[in-house]
């Protein structure tokens, strides 16, 4: 990585967030990915230099974590969950369909540099299975057909909106956020998807609610009158 003065400043800004410098290493590696799209040998050298570590020490960390890529990847990283639940619900069929449709295998990139395809592990969205992540945004309840349409639009430069998340940014832009540089876009997207809200909706239909919080302080419990969620008013 050609270490510009700006890169050095960013790495030092990350470093300043932590009580001990080495804690900055993971976000620093995310930041390097935001500049180059992957963690290059030069980036490992730069992090090592900033932290006073050897390249071997930094390389050992960079290769341990699956989100750090060791070679350039496409603008859109498409991860198909094939952990058991998503796989059974259709994730395996979706991955097969995408490999065939794109003409690439796992951990490969389309020749136009638009899409890198990989199978991923459980991404904490099992109530929306089968799930695809694009640049770590959720595309819920996928089918082989919807997945083909999704990658076609990514390749056409017309990325669809994630199911629960902000407008898609590029892999490099996403990596910058993960490095701790907020991009001002938290207000995009919904609060929650339908499956996240199903229990809440059923509770409302059934008239179910948490017991009322006490109005008067109970001795020894430190509780006083409060009106907040969980306390019917």
């Amino acid at each position: 990585m050609a270490l510009t003065e700006q890169t050095r400043l960013a790495l030092r800004e990350i470093l300043a967030r932590y009580p001990k410098p080495r804690s900055a290493l993971l976000p620093m590696l995310h930041y390097c990915q935001s500049e180059e799209g992957y963690v290059s040998p030069a980036a490992i050298g730069a992090c090592a230099e900033e932290l006073g570590l050897t390249k071997a020490e930094v390389g050992a960390v960079a290769t341990f974590y699956t989100m750090y890529k060791r070679r350039p990847i496409g603008d859109y990283y498409v991860g198909v969950c094939t952990n058991t639940l998503c796989a059974v619900m259709g994730g395996d069929a979706i991955l097969d369909a995408l490999e065939e449709h794109l003409g690439i295998g796992n951990d490969e990139t389309t020749p136009d540099g638009a899409v890198t395809l990989e199978h991923i592990e459980c991404n904490a969205a099992c109530d929306y299975a089968p799930v695809i992540m694009v640049n770590w945004e959720f595309f819920d309840n996928q089918t082989p057909g919807s997945a083909r349409e999704l990658v076609d639009r990514l390749r056409a430069g017309d990325p669809p909106l994630p199911t629960r998340g902000g407008r898609l940014c590029t892999w490099k832009e996403a990596s910058r956020v993960l490095a701790g540089f907020y991009d001002g876009r938290a207000d995009e997207g919904p609060s929650a998807g339908p499956a996240s809200l199903i229990g809440l909706e059923m509770a409302a239909e059934r008239g179910d609610r948490a017991p009322q919080m006490p109005r008067v302080a109970s001795p020894g419990t430190g509780s006083v009158s409060m009106a907040r969620d969980g306390a019917p008013r």
Binding site: A186, G199, R206, D229, G230
Partner: peptide, 18 residues
């Protein structure tokens, strides 16, 4: 048995994250 939304109670609120 009744559902007891406490942690989830505000998830449907507009701009619930603010």
């Amino acid at each position: 048995f009744a559902l007891t939304p406490v942690l989830t109670a505000n998830w449907a609120q507009p701009r619930s994250w603010t």
